[in-house]
């Protein structure tokens, strides 16, 4: 296998695997937040911003994967 092809593969695998965890995590966060809103609709104004912030933090892992794949591709 050529080095270039291996890099491409590695980058794809890195971001693909790295996106699984945050995907699941964000899904859980959203589902719990929606559950909470369904139970207490008045609190949606407080829940939604907090949900976005926690989702953004959960996203960090995917972002590390993105950085790694960028490093593999371009570094």
């Amino acid at each position: 296998m050529e080095l270039e092809a291996a890099k491409m593969l590695g980058a794809g695998i890195a971001i693909g695997l790295g996106a699984i965890g945050p995907g699941i995590g964000e899904g859980i966060a959203a589902s719990k937040a929606l559950e909470a809103i369904g139970r207490n609709p008045e609190a949606s104004g407080k829940i939604v911003p907090l949900m976005f912030v926690s989702m953004a933090i959960a996203e960090s892992t995917a972002i590390y994967a993105l950085v790694i794949s960028l490093i593999i591709l371009f570094g």
Binding site: S60, Y64, L66
Partner: peptide, 13 residues
């Protein structure tokens, strides 16, 4: 250090 990376790459990414 990870704060720098995650904060910047989140938006950029």
């Amino acid at each position: 250090l990870a704060k720098i990376v995650s904060l910047s790459f989140r938006l950029f990414g």
